[in-house]
């Protein structure tokens, strides 16, 4: 008599093969399977359909489904690369891969640029940055006068917008974050190093016979 029951697993939509996902990312097969435990928890929090919708994403971030947040929406849209309105497991793993401590710095710089280039023009424009600053003030208890916001924008653009055309291009962004590396701190999640320890139950659901590391 064994300790575990053998069960026929229900196919999960969008559940890509962990071995293939591991080959495309910095994650090992075990880490991909541990990420699936996290994915299952988030994707079943409102509708148990094997996909993360925006409401579930907000709920996981804020523990509050009613809270709309510009930045969480932006991150969701970048994870949802196929623009389906939902994040499948492959999207989830490939996007989190950019946040891995070992991911290339260039990938982090590029993802961060897309995050702030909200309208996708290929430039971070002053109006976009102002909109994000105002959104930050709304979500935090920080209060800044409009004049102060303009001073912050002037200072930021005088440093980052080298050709002074009122917008930050990819090359200017690259130089700016290289001089201000703290701006990339949000792009690294130390949790991803210990994902198998955080979600040890992956071993009971593993699809691979021998877990490669």
């Amino acid at each position: 008599m064994g300790c575990f029951h053998s069960t026929v697993r229900k196919p999960v939509p969008g559940h890509e093969n962990p071995t293939i996902l591991a080959s495309q990312t910095a994650f090992s097969v075990s880490e991909v399977e541990a990420l699936f435990e996290l994915f299952k928890s988030i994707s079943s929090s409102v509708i148990d359909d094997g996909l993360i919708n925006k409401e579930e994403f907000q709920l996981a971030l804020f523990k509050n489904r009613k809270k709309e947040n510009l930045f969480a929406n932006r991150i969701f849209d970048l994870f949802d690369v196929k623009q389906k309105g939902v994040i499948d497991f492959g999207d989830f793993v490939r996007a989190l891969n950019v946040f891995h401590p070992n991911a290339p710095q260039e990938d982090k710089i590029s993802f961060c640029f897309k995050l702030y280039d909200m309208d996708g023009t290929g430039f971070i424009e002053r109006q976009e940055v102002k909109q994000m600053l105002i959104a930050l003030l709304c979500e935090s208890e920080l209060k800044l006068a409009d004049d102060t916001i303009e001073v912050i924008l002037d200072k930021t653009f005088s440093e980052a917008d080298v050709d002074q055309d009122g917008k930050i291009d990819k090359s200017e962004w690259h130089n700016f974050v290289t001089k201000n590396p703290s701006l990339l701190k949000i792009m690294t999640l130390p949790y991803l190093r210990d994902i198998t320890t955080t979600f040890p139950s992956f071993v009971f659901n593993s699809e691979v016979e021998e877990i490669a590391t």
Partner: peptide
Amino acid sequence: PAAMNAFELISMSKGLNLGNLFDT
């Protein structure tokens, strides 16, 4: 805050702190 650049301020947003996803 006025001494910080705009992106330093923006990166303080809770919506950009994906570490919260792991707090299940």
